[in-house]
Design a protein around this nucleic acid. Sequence first.
DNA 1: GGAGTGACAGATATTGAAATCTGTCATCGG
DNA 2: CCGATGACAGATTTCAATATCTGTCACTCC
Lengths: 196, 196
Amino acid sequence: MAATETLTAERILEATEEVLRRYGPAKATVVDVARVLGVSHGSVYRHFRTKAALREAVTERWLERTIVALRPYVGAGGPADERLTEWLTALFALKRKKAGGDPELMATFQVLIGENSAVVDRHEEHLVEQIAHIVEDGHREGLFAAPERDFTTTARAVFHATDRFHNPAHAADWSAPGVEEAFTAVVSLVQRALRA
Amino acid sequence: MAATETLTAERILEATEEVLRRYGPAKATVVDVARVLGVSHGSVYRHFRTKAALREAVTERWLERTIVALRPYVGAGGPADERLTEWLTALFALKRKKAGGDPELMATFQVLIGENSAVVDRHEEHLVEQIAHIVEDGHREGLFAAPERDFTTTARAVFHATDRFHNPAHAADWSAPGVEEAFTAVVSLVQRALRA
DNA sequence: GGAGTGACAGATATTGAAATCTGTCATCGG
DNA sequence: CCGATGACAGATTTCAATATCTGTCACTCC
């Protein structure tokens, strides 16, 4: 049996995700994680100093997946304005799918997010940088006007303006009728604001 | 003593606010409200069918105050683009002041908001109508371009784009360094989007 | 007659004792 | 040696008994 594999941080993170998925954020314990792995909970503490650190690492992994999923839209071909709309639409679709497909998992995720604001801040900076990259491309292509201050500030404004459509805090609104239209209207507003 | 005043819905609402302020949303009971008024809790039920209805009425009253406070910025003189910035700034300032001045009261308010989404939806429609009014003025004045669909849709997009700066769900972010700049950047984005 | 009452049943919240969990560390065994 | 263990102290959570609250209604008293 492969159960005698060495205990790695990676395997612990996978088990932790599994436990969080199964029991939710309130009931998931380090002892549960150890049980899933067939080791004592002391072993888990050899890789993660605290339960909080373990949860933080899971959160980071989780958020990283979004970054990776969106990366293609940054570097893809085609005009930057279209790429921006695609990027924003992809982000919304991703979040919406997660929220709609498994509301409990989304709730779990939201709790983790609330616990790890520093990680979330760094994650948001990554996303802002992706937007900034597209906006800068758009400026070079002559599609977007020069930013009022700098690309990152403009990108952050775009990120904030679309907050309602990617921030998990608003997940409950994403199944309301008319969200599609509301999203399109905001994206359209953003496009008009950037247009040269 | 004036304590023998007749029991009105108004007096009950005031007492309820007082109780919510003092005990918070989890511990505030109808019995507490009755005690403050010096009546039996049965009397309170004569004016409000349920505890939920009582809380809903408080929420409505609370939200109504924002509508009233912002009304001046809608009808004021001056160019519509400036009025829009002033309206958005006033809304942000109002919410921020409440959140910063008494975080516990804000938390209480947030719980009530969560319980009464229908009331909140109606409230948001009122705010959107105020924005729509200003945007329509701006179009008449030649400052804003014709809306892509209609004034209400554009207004709603403006409301959603600035969500992060008025939605109590984000209250925690309003004391972070750089919020002012972030707010200004989003308002500036919105202005650029509307400009003729 | 109609605003106000208070006893009541069922639902919800509080409390404190018992169970479980977190994080440490001396010790084990390969 | 060095990763893994499990007993342990203190912190946190669970659970069930107890208390309080919600909503109703027959009644009172002005």
